[in-house]
Design a protein around this nucleic acid. Structure first.
Length: 481
RNA sequence: GCGGGAGUAACUCAGUGGUAGAGUCACGGCCUUCCAAGCCGUUGGUCGCGAGUUCGAAUCUCGUCUCCCGCUCCA
């Protein structure tokens, strides 16, 4: 299977209306991207597929949608105010950049020595704050400092008690959320892989201490299978178990699902990067947001008004739930599905044509209805009527007659439309008169009110009665998201 | 932030001091019975931006912005 580099996808995305550089007519803004007409459909489908899998298809997850602006104290007690601000220094000699507080122990990337040995060439440390700051209140001097949330998870933790109380939930259960998050990344890049504004799809799954390892394993399995179900090829997806030294101080374990985003890189290890992280965060999060002294984490929360201690209503047992966090990036998932769907196939003329083999549930457009020729009004009217009917039944369909049939097929292949419906003369039951032959024949009469349905991946065609189209597509497009 | 590379039409690019181009794409017309057909026509670029040198700058010089690659960061 051919692999594709991101540059090819960037070009395709712009040319066909998936993703554009943001603010482009003003020269752009670093690392911001806008989803265009097809991109928004694709990304919405990715998000709906995720929501369906984790909320609708299960009975132990609630959904929510939290505010981007939150009380600053949330970030104080979550630890972000302290850890999201790093002093960094540059080395003028080897061109490396290091955390000033760790520089002495690090190896110089260019010379065989520790960074401390070239410390005379280090620039003064500068503070890099990874959280976007803004103000709440229009008068700048009086306004309160606020941050754009750097992750969606905290919305879930601070709503834990409200959801338990309002939805009669018992642990184990989870809360799912899709939303924007913002990080002033030092080095964004690689298209939508790392951007400063991005969308997360996160679950915080609360469970009893002692059952956490089983739930962790469960979620790794669930999430891995979700990507496979929606078309990611197994050879491009792997699990990476974080080593103890890589773990956050409170995390007990973390397994990343990595996708082969960069197959063009020579170093095989660098071809892989994180698609989703599934962490066992222990009871850290609910503890730090609980009022009072938290011995285990050696901190005292003097601002929170609530204890997030959980009391099991059946056993009366009290404990702070452990949290399993499957945290996925909506933009990264969308990019992975795009990369994985890309394929090329030789056309009749031998030239390669792009076919985007998106899973039907993710495809921006499900069916394109096309007239075989556009200068025959009967073909045009019939095709438009079929398009309207399919759309009324909830199947995303478009009509197009702006080119010859071959080009129309090629265009739909390139944007991943699974099926094309073509209205021809047989559909009208009037077979075109050939020299010396009657205008109609028994064969064409039998084909009246049927259309051809062309498959994107095989380019094979089937003759289907118009009345049978909804059922035909329902079987092949799968359940609605 | 440092180093390297690059900015010319929607895309891919040519154009090294003298009237801004090609292919593709897009749009319209004619035509067309199924895989990017043909013919005709059309739209679209202050050559990233700003200075400077010059009779004259896409081209030379300086500055600046943006993007890409690499490095440092990413609970």
């Amino acid at each position: 299977m051919a692999t594709v580099d991101i540059g090819t996808i960037v070009s395709l995305c712009k040319r066909r209306g998936f993703i554009f550089p943001a603010s482009e007519i003003y020269g752009g803004l670093g690392s911001t991207w806008d989803y265009g007409p097809l991109g928004v459909e694709l990304k919405n489908n990715v998000k709906r597929a995720w929501w369906k899998a984790v909320v609708y298809d299960r009975d132990d997850i609630e959904g929510m949608d939290g505010a981007i602006l939150m009380n600053r104290l949330v970030w104080k007690y979550s630890g972000h105010e302290a850890t999201f601000s790093d002093p960094l220094a540059d080395c003028r000699e080897c061109k490396g950049r290091f955390r000033a507080d760790k520089a002495y122990e690090l190896d110089c990337p260019r010379y065989k020595r520790k960074v401390i040995e070239c410390s005379a060439n280090l620039t003064e440390p500068r503070a890099f704050n990874l959280m976007f700051k803004t103000q709440v209140g229009p008068v700048e001097e009086d306004a309160a400092l606020a941050y754009l949330r750097p992750e969606t998870a905290q919305s879930i933790f601070v709503n834990f008690k409200a959801i338990v109380d309002s939805r009669w939930r018992k642990v184990p259960f989870g809360i799912a959320q899709i939303g924007k998050a913002f990080r002033n990344e030092i080095v964004p890049g690689n298209f939508t892989f790392r951007t400063r504004e991005f969308e997360q799809m996160e679950i915080e799954f609360f469970c009893k201490p002692g059952t956490d390892e089983d739930w962790h394993a469960h979620w790794i399995e669930e999430r891995h299978n979700w990507y496979l179900r929606y078309g990611i090829r197994p050879e491009n997806l792997r699990r990476y178990v974080q080593q103890p030294a890589e773990l956050a101080h409170y995390a007990r374990a973390c397994t990343d699902l990595q996708y082969r985003f960069f197959p063009e890189r020579e170093d095989a290890e660098k071809q892989w990067d994180e698609l989703e992280g599934i962490a066992n965060r222990t009871d850290y999060d609910l503890s730090v947001h609980s009022k009072g002294k938290q011995e285990k984490w050696r901190l005292h929360n003097e601002h929170s008004t609530q204890s997030l201690l959980y009391r099991d209503p059946v056993t009366n047992e009290k404990f702070v739930p452990y949290v399993i966090e499957p945290s996925a990036g909506a933009d990264r998932a969308t990019l992975a599905f795009l990369l994985d769907a890309y394929s090329e196939k030789a056309g009749a003329d031998g030239e390669p044509r792009v076919v985007l083999k998106l899973h039907p549930a993710l495809a921006p457009i499900k069916v394109a209805v096309l007239p075989l020729a556009r200068n025959k009004s009967e073909l045009v009217e019939k095709a438009k009527a079929i398009k309207s009917d399919l759309q009324r039944r909830g199947i995303r369909a478009v009509y197009d007659d702006t080119a010859a049939i071959g080009k129309l097929y090629a265009r739909q292949d390139e944007i991943g439309t699974p099926f094309c419906v073509t209205v021809d003369y047989d559909t009208l039951g009037v077979g075109k008169a050939q020299a010396g032959e009657p205008a109609t024949s028994p064969v064409t009469t039998a084909l009246k009110d049927t259309v051809t349905v062309r498959d994107r991946d095989t380019w094979e065609q089937a003759r289907i009665p118009i009345a049978g189209l909804p059922e035909f597509f329902a079987e092949r497009l799968g359940p609605a998201l």
